[in-house]
């Protein structure tokens, strides 16, 4: 059981959040003391029948007072907004060097998969002091990936990918929770995050049962689902080649240019008629309903791995 009285600051982000939290606590505490203090003071001093001096209100002051505290609160809030938002903007994008881990949420479990192919259920092992980037998707309803010790939370939404990143700064085991109500066993959709020293993590990975990594799994799917029939280099069908595709700008038939990222590849698999590449016929069938989210992630990883090969072979 974790301590019921304090929450560990187990990521770099947690320290930032707590700084803002403590400042807000200080400010709102001071305001509360001021308001409650004044009410108590007035209540005692000006209770009916007390001998305190009444006299008319100093009317001239009232409007200036009013404007004064309006402006003061406005400026305070503007400062708070600026401070809190700049912290948020600073942590928006994951560093490019981050370890990429895929997360699939479903009623009511978390499935995670490491780049090596190691899979876990309701658990995630991560190395210490290294940024970890989670790419998340949901198979059914909206869930929310919440690690209190890291102060991170993000909804996992069906039909689109969301992501989140953190850098663990303390080793240990921390709770992973689902924070968005997702049905009967919402409260049982819990897991653990295990933060290990980097060499321990490497050792742990080796011990995991031989799983294909995502890209290899994707390569198998590429053949078994028939993608290779058209997209393989040897194919006679006039279909776009995928080597070197990932991350490149793609010219579409309707004149738009899009970047071939995860979302684009996912859309091309599920709704191929939407973004047709210039110079090709819209002949590809949709794989909607044939592939689950995990399989799409594997295919994407495979297409990504092709970008490291020579594009012009």
């Amino acid at each position: 059981m974790n301590s019921p009285f304090r929450l560990p600051e187990a990521s770099t982000h947690a320290v930032t959040v707590d700084h803002i939290f403590y400042l807000l606590l200080l400010l709102s505490g001071a305001t509360a003391v001021l308001v409650f203090g004044l009410i108590l003071l007035f209540a005692v001093r000006y209770r009916r029948g007390s001998s305190a001096k009444r006299g008319p209100m100093p009317e001239i002051l009232s409007r200036e007072f009013e404007i004064g505290w309006t402006v003061a609160t406005l400026l305070t809030f503007a400062f708070l907004f600026w401070w809190a938002s700049s912290a948020d903007l600073g942590s928006l994008a994951a560093p490019p060097s981050a370890l990429e881990i895929h997360v699939v949420a479903k009623q009511w479990m978390w499935k995670t998969q490491h780049p090596s192919g190691a899979r876990e259920i309701n658990a995630l092992h991560v190395p210490l002091d290294r940024p970890v980037h989670l790419l998340m998707s949901s198979q059914d309803v909206i869930h929310s990936f919440f690690v209190p010790a890291f102060r991170v939370k993000k909804d996992v939404v069906p039909g689109r990918d969301t992501d989140i990143w953190f850098q663990a700064s303390k080793s240990g085991t921390f709770p992973l929770l689902c924070a968005e109500y997702c049905g009967t066993n919402h409260s049982m959709m819990r897991g653990k995050i295990v933060v290990m020293r980097q060499d321990d993590y490497a050792g742990w990975l080796v011990q995991q049962p031989e799983g294909d990594d995502l890209a290899h799994e994707g390569a198998k799917l590429f053949v078994s689902q028939g993608c290779s029939g058209c997209h393989a280099a040897s194919s006679n069908v006039h279909a776009p080649r995928l080597a070197g595709l990932y991350g490149r700008a793609v010219q579409l038939a309707d004149g738009r240019t899009v970047s071939a990222d995860e979302a684009y590849i996912r859309d091309s698999i599920l709704q191929p008629k939407r973004d047709v590449v210039a110079g090709y016929e819209p002949v590809m069938p949709s794989f909607k309903g044939l592939l689950d989210d995990g399989e799409i992630q594997s295919l994407t990883a495979y297409i990504r791995s092709l970008s490291k090969e020579q594009p012009d072979d």
């Binding site: 982000h13 930032t16 959040v17 803002i20 939290f21 807000l24 400010l27 709102s28 809030f77 708070l80 907004f81 809190a84 938002s85 912290a87 948020d88 942590s91 209190p148 102060r151 991170v152 939370k153 993000k154």
Partner: peptide, 11 residues
């Protein structure tokens, strides 16, 4: 106020 500030609200 805690809920208006993005990083704290996220937590």
């Amino acid at each position: 106020l805690f809920l208006a500030s993005i990083p704290v609200d996220i937590h």
